[in-house]
Design a protein around this nucleic acid. Structure first.
Lengths: 149, 149
DNA sequence: CTGCTACCTAAACTTAAGTTGAGGTCAAGC
DNA sequence: GCTTGACCTCAACTTAAGTTTAGGTAGCAG
């Protein structure tokens, strides 16, 4: 088995192809400080190839619901900003799973509340905890109301 | 048990208090066609009180992830735009639960992919389905790579 | 009459995550 | 020697879901 050596540096176009992220978005990430590049003699960006991994992690983080600002903080928290190790990824991944878990729980709760609400047919203007999370005034004085038209 | 009659018409301030939605947002919803009002002699908005229910439904729909544009379509699909019946709510609620279910499934899949990825410690630049959803080029020619620094 | 409060309109501003456009450089191929 | 393609910068534009601001009205209390 021969070991094939990949090029050390890649252009923004190649980075775009390899990650599925548009060139303009990559420029944008760079302005935001999420990725960094060097320039060649023609002033073209040159990325060390492991930036592919960073961009990929950014995509995953976005899919789990983080903002680019959050992600920047995560990346800044890494021991080595440019080379993400296996240990880094384990730590990030576990944290992100926690975040996903929270999101899933929230949506599940909402769904269950909906089931209850549909099941009981309440739609009460004053009492339904799904429909009236903020209502304090309506709760007193006027009594519950059924939506039986 | 006395039946207490609620006022037929409420002001925008009251609607705001009862729903937890800011006055400016209610104005905005009205511009978007999500709710409708009549005006009194002072040109103040007057809402029939069942608009509370519509605004509440808007909140729930937003929490399940619909955009206001989506929600407008949902509301326009109702037999009676101004008075949401129990049957309407059942139909909407079931559809929205489906949407929630889809979202939950997606997030769960992402979380499982993360587990696999962390578990196998791959982080392969070329093969990880979590990290490389778009990569076609990298898949050929260069072979897998481990992130063992 | 004065002030207060709730309301009105229209337009500009906000944030996130980019995209689009205009105008310019550079190296390669024909 | 010209054209093409990939790249560069900077500024303006986009969408969603509102918020903020400025300036104006209507009715009630004292």
């Amino acid at each position: 088995m021969r070991k094939i050596i990949m090029p050390e540096w890649i252009s923004v176009g190649v980075l775009s192809e390899r990650t599925g992220v548009s060139v303009s978005a990559l420029h944008f990430y760079e302005r935001k400080g999420l990725i960094k590049s060097q320039r060649n003699t023609s002033n073209h960006r040159q990325y060390p190839k492991h930036v592919i991994r960073i961009v990929s992690l950014i995509q995953v983080a976005q899919r789990t619901g983080f903002s680019l600002e959050d992600i920047l903080l995560e990346l800044e928290g890494l021991p080595n900003r440019t080379r993400v190790t296996l240990e880094d990824w384990e730590a990030l991944g576990l944290r992100w799973q926690g975040e996903l878990e929270r999101k899933i729980t929230q949506l599940t709760e909402l769904k269950n509340m909906m089931s209850d609400c549909i099941g009981c047919g309440c739609l009460s203007l004053e009492r339904c905890r799904l429909l009236n999370p903020y209502d304090e005034l309506g709760a007193k004085g006027t009594g519950p109301q059924r939506m039986t038209e």
